[in-house]
Design a protein around this nucleic acid. Structure first.
Length: 694
DNA sequence: GGTTAGGCTTTG
């Protein structure tokens, strides 16, 4: 046994001797009875050959990470005496994070409480910031060794004395008993474990102090609170203030104030910042906090202590209508103000990370859909979040949010960013929202639905007999008799390219006499169809029906603005590849009509409501082509689902999702009457659930 | 070895 241990031990002793390390030298001083065996074990040097066996025993003990068998005495806070040095346990009721004092050291102020119901305010100094107690949360349990008790302002006060050391434990019952400490070796007995556990249980029953930690979803305006959160962006505002963009996976239900930052000044991943724009808050930190804020790493979990949720002051008359919140970390260290970075193994950090990961997955539209019910709690917040990601502002996310009642008071034209719920919308039959718009004459027509198209083509085939066509050099004609009761004839004129007929999927055909259903069938096989009719042995366009059909796209021309030319003009396109609808419209003198969804939204926030149109940017908003939806039942279903997410009529309005929208106001003359209209622009829907629907 | 700060009714 001796042989085994003597080598490493004597090696260490020799090294200790060389470096004159006082830890291994004999030192008998007039220390208090409980003093520091863990830091300065009373060991005799091997080279001196005095009491070598004792020295070895100590070293072996040290190597095995066990403190010497010295027993510490702990004093209840109610039993402390002036001008003594004591060891104490306690629950943290207040603390200031270490900060640079005006002297040479860092300083930290900690108030603790124990079962004697006596509080002790302590002030600790150290040149090494890490040596100060690592407290992150009210309720943490601490063990202090060698604090000097003295009187100040008629109260007993604790202060760090020579050899001061601290252990800190999480205050939650059942959290791991891992001490946070800068001490390389420390004594922690099973009795100490019991003391920590007893204090954890004891503080559960305490009414008097509660942690001021809040989630963003339960912050009340005017409150000061501690926030554990992840840093997603940061930016220097000026010398005395710094911006932190943070989120905690929950959503603040009050409208928030956003700080304007030039794009180049903002640090952080743009995609994350955009994706989280509705969940992340802007916190402005001031003065002494700026230096630390600068050093924070994007993505890290931090605690901001004593954040102030303050009503935004517009400075105007309508103080009562201010509806959004600013978040500030004011300068100074009063009330424990500061920013801390808890260790990654901290229970609260792990919990936060779990929630953020899950919310991230749900909000990330590129990952497969995950059933919320398959996830473990706590995911009520998640469901809330998922609802909230319903819009994205690609261009103007830095704009401040304007309450709806302020918009109604403003003159036009102007642009705003709003946050509102969709209280109702019109038309309810979604097919009625599909319109044809002429950008030239600004006319707006209903897009013909299936029924009207059936009628249009029925009338047409009844009205005009099939031409006696002869084949020409640029098309070849075939006539079929339907063989149905109506004994109708359908003519198809196959357009040749390079003097040749193409495969159906590349072909342009001109069709005469076909019904709506037949055209639908033909459109699934042929690349492009132009419905035509005969007039005096010639084929011609008729804009009362679609001028061109390409798959699910049925395109129309403006009857007023088009200047129809002969179909022979198509010959100019015969040498080009493909059949470009725009080129064909141009060749035939057709002014194409644009398909739009035109909807009327009643938007509502806490301050009022606003009627806004969605039309010119409706395709961008829904990311559904309105030119195809009438021929595509999947797209129709998708639009229905979107509208039922935005405006779920089975729920209370309080449960409707919030939408961030850009709104522009403009003056419009309707029936000789000037009025201000509002239109949604630069806004995209982003409903993760729906991305699985194609 | 001295000094530092000595929570507290906050607010850009």
């Amino acid at each position: 046994m001796n042989r085994h241990v003597s080598h490493p031990a004597s090696h260490i002793l020799q090294r200790a001797h060389k470096s004159n390390d006082s830890r291994y030298s004999t030192q008998r001083s007039s220390r208090p009875p409980n003093s520091e065996p863990e830091r300065r074990p009373s060991v005799t040097c091997l080279r001196c050959r005095r009491d070598g066996r004792t020295a070895l025993r100590y070293l072996i003990t040290l190597l095995l990470f066990q403190g010497p068998a010295q027993k510490y005495v702990y004093t209840a806070l109610g039993q402390l005496k002036e001008d003594t040095v004591a060891n104490v346990f306690g629950v943290v009721t207040f603390f200031k994070l270490p900060y640079r004092s005006k002297g040479t050291d860092f300083c930290s102020v900690v108030t603790i409480l124990d079962q004697s119901n006596v509080k002790l305010k302590c002030t600790f100094f150290s040149g090494n910031q890490d040596a100060l107690p690592r407290i992150y949360k009210i309720g943490d349990i601490v063990r202090f060794h060698r604090i000097k008790i003295q009187r100040f302002n008629d109260e007993l006060q604790g202060i760090s004395s020579s050899g001061f050391s601290a252990l800190v434990f999480e205050g939650t019952v059942d959290a791991p008993l891992i001490p946070r400490t800068a001490s390389k070796s420390y004594n922690f007995t099973t009795e100490d474990q019991k003391t920590v556990e007893t204090l954890r249980n004891w503080q559960l029953g305490l009414q008097n102090f509660t942690s001021s930690r809040r989630n963003l979803s339960n912050v009340q305006p005017g409150q000061y609170f501690d926030l554990i959160c992840q840093l997603v962006g940061k930016a220097e505002i000026d010398k005395a203030s710094y911006l932190l963009k943070v989120w905690d996976g929950t959503r603040c239900s009050t409208l928030q104030w956003k700080v304007y930052v030039e794009d180049y000044a903002l640090e952080g991943d743009r995609d994350s910042i955009t994706r989280l724009q509705d969940l992340a808050i802007d916190v402005l930190v001031y003065d002494n906090h700026v230096e630390l804020a600068k050093s924070l790493k994007i993505g890290s979990c931090i605690v901001i202590h004593n954040v102030h949720a303050k009503w935004h002051n517009t400075g105007g008359e309508n103080q009562g209508h201010d509806t959004y919140l600013e978040f500030h970390l004011h300068g100074g260290t009063c009330y424990g103000r500061g920013i801390s970075v808890p260790p990654e193994d901290d229970s609260d950090v792990k919990e936060l990370q779990k929630v953020l990961d899950a919310v991230g997955i749900v909000s990330d539209v590129t990952t497969p859909h995950i059933q919320l019910s398959q996830m473990s709690p706590p995911f009520d917040a998640l469901k809330r979040c998922q609802q909230l990601f319903v819009t994205v502002l690609p261009a103007h996310q830095q704009w401040q949010i304007t309450p709806l009642n302020n918009i109604a008071k403003s003159k036009a034209p102007q642009k705003f960013r709003i946050r509102a719920r969709l209280k109702s919308f019109q038309p309810h039959h979604l097919y009625q929202s599909v319109k044809l718009h002429c950008t030239k004459c600004n006319s707006l027509l209903d897009a013909p639905d299936e029924q009207s198209l059936t009628k249009i083509f029925e009338d047409r085939s009844n009205g005009s007999p099939i031409t006696n066509t002869t084949n020409t050099f640029w098309y070849r004609s075939e006539v079929w008799n339907t063989g149905n009761l109506d004994n109708r004839a359908v003519a198809i004129h196959f357009v040749k390219k390079y003097d040749d007929l193409q495969n159906p999927e590349n072909s342009l055909i001109m069709v005469e006499g076909a019904s709506f259903k037949e055209l639908c069938k033909l459109s699934t096989h042929f690349n492009t169809i132009i419905p035509v009719k005969s007039k005096e042995e010639n084929l011609e366009l008729d804009l009362s029906a679609p001028f061109l059909i390409q798959g699910k796209k049925w395109l129309y021309g403006c009857m007023k603005c088009s200047n129809i030319k002969s179909l022979e003009e198509l010959k100019s396109l015969l040498l080009e590849t493909g059949w470009d609808a725009m080129e064909m419209a141009k060749a035939l003198g057709v002014e194409l009509l644009t398909h739009l969804f035109v909807m009327n939204f009643i938007l509502e926030d806490e301050t009022g409501s606003l009627k806004a149109y969605l039309w010119r940017e409706s395709e961008r908003f829904f990311q559904i082509p309105p030119s195809e939806i009438l021929m595509d039942s999947d797209l129709q279903e998708k639009l229905h689902m979107i509208m039922s997410v935005l405006c779920p009529s089975t729920k209370q309005i309080g449960e409707y999702p919030w939408m961030d929208c850009c709104i522009r106001s403009y003056n419009s003359n309707v029936g000789g009457k000037e009025q201000i209209c509002y239109e949604v622009f630069d806004t995209l829907l982003s409903v993760p659930d729906l991305d699985t629907i194609k």
